[in-house]
């Protein structure tokens, strides 16, 4: 079990969705450790859980399989190896920093990092920027931007404001997807 989480949690490029798809194939389709309901529940809960979605997802799958100890094994297996790799890469980074060619390469790489950050904005917001949630999403995003950038609230104050606003003003019920709960 730890092996599966190490392999798919830590050695998959491409971020959360790819990792969860890989685990779907391995733990559900190939090994039958969990069923579709477990997967769906963990998928939904992991996105409600703060922090990195994939880690909560792995902990949830571990929990459904083997209780608390399963959750711990899954969480460790999916997070320790990539943490170690990140540490090694960071140490190398710090070590090579004074080399002229490395400097030149880093210069370009961090320019790409800015693109990744801007793209991060898009990938977080784009699921909401369509259909009935479009204007609501634009309003919330713009308000958050202005509260931080112009009003000078701290990020945590902005997040809390958004949470309160979201709780007080749920969107008008849309007759799609969810239907009758």
């Amino acid at each position: 079990m730890a092996k599966v989480f190490v392999r798919h949690g830590s050695f998959t490029f491409g971020g959360g969705a790819v990792i969860m798809l890989a685990l779907h194939r391995e733990a559900l389709e190939r090994r039958g450790w969990i069923d579709e309901d477990d997967f769906g529940l963990c998928f939904a809960l992991a996105r409600l859980t703060p922090g990195t979605t994939v880690l909560a997802f792995c902990a949830g799958i571990g929990l459904r399989m083997r209780g608390l100890s399963g959750a711990m094994v899954a969480l460790l297996a999916s997070s320790l190896p990539c943490a170690v790799m990140v540490i090694a890469a960071t140490a190398l980074f710090a070590f090579w920093q004074d080399n002229h060619w490395v400097q030149a390469a880093i210069h370009g790489a961090i320019a790409a990092a800015v693109a990744l950050t801007v793209w991060g904005v898009w990938s977080i917001a784009s699921p909401y920027l369509k259909g009935p949630t479009l204007y609501r999403a634009l309003l919330i995003a713009a308000t958050a931007f202005l509260l931080f950038q112009v009003v000078g609230l701290s990020p945590i104050q902005v997040i809390l404001t958004a949470a309160v606003g979201g709780a007080l003003f749920p969107p008008k019920a849309t007759p799609t997807a969810d239907g009758v709960a």
């Binding site: 917001a125 902005v158 979201g166 709780a167």
Partner: peptide, 18 residues
């Protein structure tokens, strides 16, 4: 709705941080 608002607000914050 609460979670949605938090997620979208974080996109606005990230835009400011970029």
């Amino acid at each position: 709705s609460t979670l949605q608002a938090v997620v979208i607000a974080s996109a606005g914050l990230l835009a400011a941080t970029s």
